[in-house]
């Protein structure tokens, strides 16, 4: 990332964005109040807690899990999560034999309704370049050791189709309700760079 000065008058890019917003506002193309609303929505209303609820439901309800794996988009919508950048979802089940991990090698495609906006590392050249060539090495950097006899599948997202990983339910969680289970689910677990 290029270095941004924080207390300097204003960085070139901050100034550029302000100029563009003003000019587009004057032309009636954007409305600053509408921008405030959409920013607030993606900062506070959408994020990995949504995906965690999907995972917890799948762990608790075998019928739901079957629907999720068969056709993820409507199953996810059952919990109220749908919309932009999640129009066509696929859920990938981790098993003792298969570990799934998701990337967008070409850009930054990510399932917004269930995970929110992607972290910087997901959009960064090192992750995009390396996860498809040496997934086990990258997973190890995330502290994830995948046994040699477990197959690693790397899924490359596209503008049309977005993936989320259904992690394996941790051992010893049999007595937990959905809310307690959801609290165990992490963003990185649903990208597939970590196991739970």
């Amino acid at each position: 990332m290029s270095g941004h000065r924080h207390n300097a008058p204003e960085s070139d890019i901050a100034l550029r964005v302000k100029a563009i917003e003003q000019l587009l506002t004057e032309k009636g193309i954007v409305d600053p109040a509408a921008i405030d609303l959409v920013v607030d929505y993606y900062e506070t209303r959408v994020g990995p807690r949504n995906g965690a609820r999907v995972v917890a439901r799948a762990w608790s309800d075998p019928d739901y899990k079957a629907r999720l794996l068969a056709e993820a988009t409507p199953a996810i919508a059952e919990l109220g999560f749908s919309g932009l950048q999640g129009e066509d979802m696929v859920a990938l089940e981790n098993t003792p034999e298969v570990h799934n991990v998701v990337v967008c090698t070409l850009c930054s495609c990510y399932p917004w309704p269930v995970l929110g906006l992607p972290p910087v590392w997901y959009k960064s050249p090192p992750y995009r370049a390396r996860i498809v060539r040496e997934p086990r090495a990258v997973l190890a950097e995330f502290g994830t050791r995948v046994a040699d006899d477990v197959e690693v599948r790397v899924w490359d997202s596209s503008a049309e189709l977005r993936y989320m990983v259904l992690p394996m339910r941790p051992a010893g969680t049999e007595g937990l309700d959905e809310e307690a289970l959801a609290a165990l689910v992490t963003r990185d677990g649903m990208i597939g760079v970590t196991a739970l």
Binding site: H4, V38, E43, L117, V120, W121, P126, V138
Partner: peptide, 21 residues
């Protein structure tokens, strides 16, 4: 792969405006 602990959704105010624009 460089990661950031507790990464915010946006790092600067201008990123928020850029996203909204």
């Amino acid at each position: 792969v460089e990661r950031e602990e507790d990464e915010p959704v946006f790092h600067h105010d201008w990123e928020k405006r850029a996203f909204g624009i």
